[in-house]
Simulated scan of single mutants.
Amino acid sequence: MNSPRLRIGRVSMPNHAYELTMVCEHRRAWFDDPANARVVTALFPLLDAQGLSHSLAWVVMPDHVHWLFQLGNRPLSYVAQRFKSRSALMLNRLHLRNGRVWQTGYYDHCLRSETALRRHAFYVMENPVPGGLADRIGQYPYAWCRWPLEDDPR
């Protein structure tokens, strides 16, 4: 979705937790291919090491990514742009192609409480289950969470 309405009210607050959802162009299932999923999963620790983020949970679904992280000192838009541009570059190189990988824009949600943080972490980790990619939380290979999530916090 390329809508300026996505930016209304968007603020970047360093050290606050955010959940980002980024969707592949035309909902193409890029990450059905394990090699492509591994390219993206390798970016989370890289961005963490650069001080742009501190990952708390993520899942790489076939056609989109959910990422829960604590923002570093750069704006949220910068972190999202770095993630999307770096992953697109790497995927295009891997497949000897040029072209878009991601839809323009992203969805974000600032998490303002520990309860909200746990609820969103559970949502991120549970995402593969209704999609039929896993039978239970923790079974999907392209998902990671900082905490064990046994109980549904909703």
Rank of each mutant, 00 (worst) to 15 (best):
A29N: 13
Q139L: 00
R100M: 10
R38C: 02
A42S: 14
P34L: 03
R10I: 11
L133P: 03
E25F: 11
T21R: 14
T21M: 13
L133W: 13
P148H: 11
V11C: 09
M13G: 09
D152N: 15
S55H: 04
W67E: 10
Q81L: 07
S77M: 03
L47A: 10
G72C: 08
N92V: 03
P130C: 06
Q70N: 03
G138C: 08
P128Y: 07
F69T: 01
Y123V: 01
A121S: 13
G131R: 15
A121E: 12
C145A: 15
E19G: 08
R38V: 01
P141C: 00
L6Q: 15
Y123P: 06
F83A: 11
M1D: 07
R74V: 13
S55E: 06
S53M: 10
N127K: 09
S87Y: 03
Y142N: 11
Y142P: 01
F31C: 00
L133Q: 08
G72L: 09
N73W: 04
N98D: 11
V124R: 00
T41N: 03
P130L: 06
N36V: 06
M1V: 11
R97A: 12
W102F: 04
M22Q: 12
S55F: 04
Q50V: 00
D135G: 15
D32Y: 06
E150R: 13
V79M: 09
N36F: 05
L52H: 12
R100D: 04
I8C: 10
H66E: 10
D33F: 03
A49Y: 02
M61W: 03
I8M: 10
M13N: 00
Q139V: 06
A17I: 11
N15Q: 13
A35L: 11
R86S: 15
W67L: 07
G72W: 02
N127H: 04
Q50Y: 09
M13D: 04
M22A: 14
P128A: 09
P130F: 07
L111T: 10
H66F: 10
R82L: 10
V11E: 12
Q103A: 13
L91F: 07
L149W: 07
A121R: 07
W58D: 02
H54D: 14
C145M: 01
L20N: 09
S53V: 13
A17P: 01
V59R: 06
V101A: 12
A116R: 10
P75K: 02
S113W: 08
F69G: 05
D152R: 12
E25W: 13
D32C: 05
G72T: 03
D108C: 05
L6V: 06
G99D: 07
W144R: 14
A121T: 06
E150K: 11
E126L: 13
L71G: 03
V65R: 05
E25T: 00
D135E: 14
V59C: 15
G131I: 05
L111W: 08
G51N: 08
R100C: 05
L71C: 08
V65T: 02
